[in-house]
Design a protein around this nucleic acid. Structure first.
Lengths: 238, 238
DNA sequence: TATAATAACTTGTATTTACAAGTAAAAATA
DNA sequence: TATTTTTACTTGTAAATACAAGTTATTATA
């Protein structure tokens, strides 16, 4: 019995509860309503409710304890770029600004790209752009993004300033981020990166190489992210 | 109908399939048997089989595609210290050696510990040790571990050389690792770390601060890991 | 032959039911 | 009163069933 046309029930409850946790309706340490109570409250059956809770637990919003209940664990998720939700939504209430350094252009993939590419990806080239992201006016991330040029009309004309790439993809192209993989290294920054991130001499940076999977088969987003971890740190769960 | 006394069915199937993938019975790109086939093969119902597959997908061993099936994605998981399986099991076939630099001793927690501690943890002190881990004879990790001193008889007397801490906990104390959280930074190493990891001058290191959750309520393992990411990189899924 | 419709798969979502196992508070017992 | 037992919760595991939705190969049609 799908009451809504688009999203599955468990997903809707997941989003409701996640929002409630984010907005401190349920605070850290609180017990969520029991599974049976949630069933009554939202008119679902227990397996459905449990599917929502499993997602929440997976994302680190709650912790389940047999016999006790589901405990809210709002993780002070530093700058949780490791989460799938994208930089903008992950930083929470901090003031995040995004400046475009290189506007989106269609070009060839670099010769030695950091991830292997499919033939289709190679042929169609990529949309390339560079962004600098500031947290409370301090430059923290330098993002270099590569998007396979597959059926994204007018993407190069879009305004990326202070917007999440993921939200643009979701709203205008109906593409959802599903997950991905990444490699993490500590490196000495190039002078270009050093300049943009306003680093002191000798200050190392974190380098992330990410391949992000979407709801569209074979469509990936790649990014190379340089991160100043002096004040903030990357936070993740496993 | 629990056919085995200890572990749930879905967990057993999960472990069987994971071993098959690790041992290349199923290779990367292969389709796993369909859910209904797995039901017949292992005498379970589809919800149970699906629970196993959900775990596998979660850990990045397979990728599910509606209408197609479950595709094996053996991730060339570099040195997947980010996975929950622990360093030793995560490096796969590479030659991993572990040397003890500071033998396990019971001591007080450091004054400014990297994670907040419960009262119980504070009172009971911690077991402290330092290890150097080499991959193909090259020092890669410098691990500093802190284990809450809660009911672990004879732990300081145990032989940690070339053994995974997690396997010791599992075999001798019946404690399983459930997950955890971590912070990641790029730092300039201290001279001590630099010496042990045989770093060139100016070579930065990755610094992980991890809080690892176990099957025992309130029992956590903490570790501070310094990692040389020049040759290898940390790999993770999200 | 090339295209479109169909059928036979696959996984995704959801319900219903049942019992096991852990937790905590209430009740009975010493 | 202090301890133990019971009871009433909680989540965990598992079955059987049904249909939706995506994929692929076959079959029918142009």
């Amino acid at each position: 019995m799908k009451s809504d046309g688009s999203k599955p029930q468990y997903r809707m409850l997941y989003e409701i509860l996640r929002r409630h946790i984010s907005e401190s309706v349920y605070r850290e340490g609180d017990l969520l309503p029991s599974e049976n109570e949630l069933c009554r409250l939202y008119g679902m059956t227990r397996p459905t409710v449990r599917q929502s809770l499993a997602c929440l637990a997976n994302d680190g919003y709650i912790r389940k304890h047999q016999g006790k209940g589901s405990i809210v664990t709002q993780p002070a998720r530093d700058i949780g770029i490791l989460s799938v939700s994208g930089t903008t939504s992950a930083v929470g209430n901090r003031n995040l600004k995004t400046g475009i350094i290189v506007k989106p252009v269609l070009k060839q993939w670099p010769a030695d790209f950091m991830f292997p590419l499919s033939e289709l990806e190679k042929e169609s080239g990529c949309i390339y752009f560079e962004r600098l992201r500031l947290l409370d006016e301090v430059p923290i991330f330098y993002d270099i993004s590569f998007i396979a040029n597959i059926n994204l009309p007018r993407i190069t004309a879009r305004q990326f300033e202070n917007k999440s790439l993921f939200s643009i993809l979701r709203e205008h192209y109906n593409i959802e981020i599903k997950g991905g993989e990444q490699r993490i290294r500590a490196i000495s920054p190039s002078s270009k990166i050093s300049k943009f991130l306003k680093l002191e001499k000798g200050q190392p940076v974190l380098h992330l190489e990410r391949k992000i999977e979407t709801s569209v088969n074979g469509f990936f987003i790649y990014s190379s992210i340089f991160c100043n971890t002096r004040k903030y740190s990357i936070f993740g769960r496993f």
